[in-house]
Amino acid sequence: MISFLEWIMTGKFHGLSLGATLQEVKAVLGEPETYSITRRPDDPFISKYGRLQITFVEGLAENLYVNVRGYGQDPDFAADWPLAPFSRGEVESLLLDRELLWFEDHRPVTEEADLVLTSGVSAMFHEGQLFRWNMGTWEQKRVKLFQQFFGL
């Protein structure tokens, strides 16, 4: 059982985080439902567990994300956080209720900002609605800059 709340608060679930190997992930989550391989030059490999998807580059987890819309069945998440689609205001309210700290990261391609939690997990929005929870190397770099700037 994966605690979604643990993941968004700490950036880890069952001890897994960015940098985990495929073998470590399989030891915790079992065999993935499906796999994908992209055609990018670094040839990332994606393990899919329903809505949870983990991208591996050079054998290490580089990106973990949970799609809110579609993408198969829910993995075995604990019922400690709702996965239903939310508006930006509803997500902010849930974060405030749990006293979680975040900052906005404006994506250059769109006019919408992600909410990046200090754990490194971000809430990504499309047309004002939550579509994905994400944690990757990009978010980790943003958190480090945020912490340096504010002395946290």
Rank of each mutant, 00 (worst) to 15 (best):
V109N: 10
S119D: 12
Q147I: 01
P108I: 04
M124H: 11
T118S: 08
N134M: 11
V116G: 01
E127D: 15
L145F: 04
M135L: 15
M124V: 13
R107T: 09
V116I: 09
F125M: 03
F131N: 11
E112L: 08
E111A: 07
K144G: 04
E127H: 13
L145D: 07
D105Q: 07
F131V: 11
T110H: 14
S122C: 05
W133M: 07
M124F: 04
A123K: 00
W133C: 03
S119W: 03
E127I: 06
E112S: 09
A123M: 09
R132K: 13
D114T: 02
F131S: 06
Q129F: 01
P108Q: 00
K144F: 10
W133L: 06
A113D: 12
F131C: 05
G151H: 08
Q140V: 11
T110N: 13
V109C: 08
V109L: 13
R132S: 06
K144I: 14
K144H: 09
A113L: 11
F146A: 13
N134H: 15
Q129G: 02
G120K: 01
M135A: 11
Q148V: 13
L130F: 03
L145T: 07
F146C: 10
Q147K: 06
L117S: 09
L130G: 01
W133G: 00
H106T: 10
H126N: 12
L115T: 02
E104F: 10
A123L: 10
D114G: 02
H126M: 03
A123I: 03
L145C: 05
W138Q: 13
W138F: 12
L152R: 06
K144V: 13
W138C: 07
N134R: 14
G120S: 02
F150D: 00
E127L: 13
F125H: 03
L145G: 08
R132P: 03
F149Y: 15
L115M: 11
H126T: 06
G128W: 01
M135H: 14
R142S: 06
M135N: 12
R132T: 13
K141V: 09
E104S: 12
E112W: 10
P108M: 01
Q147R: 07
Q129V: 05
F146V: 10
T110G: 14
F150V: 02
W133S: 01
R142C: 06
T118C: 09
K141L: 08
R142T: 05
H126C: 04
K141N: 05
N134D: 15
A123E: 02
G128C: 03
W138M: 11
V109W: 13
K141T: 08
Q129E: 07
Q129R: 10
E111I: 04
S122I: 00
G128A: 02
T118W: 03
L130H: 02
A113R: 08
Q147G: 00
V116L: 04
E139R: 09
E127Q: 15
R107H: 11
Q148P: 09
K144L: 14
L117Y: 09
V121Q: 04
Q148E: 15
T118A: 08
R132M: 08
E127P: 09
W138A: 13
K141R: 12
H106S: 11
T110W: 14
R142D: 02
K141I: 07
Q129W: 03
R107Y: 10
D114I: 00
G151R: 08
E139G: 08
L117A: 11
F149R: 15
L117R: 10
W138I: 14
H106L: 14
L152K: 05
A113S: 15
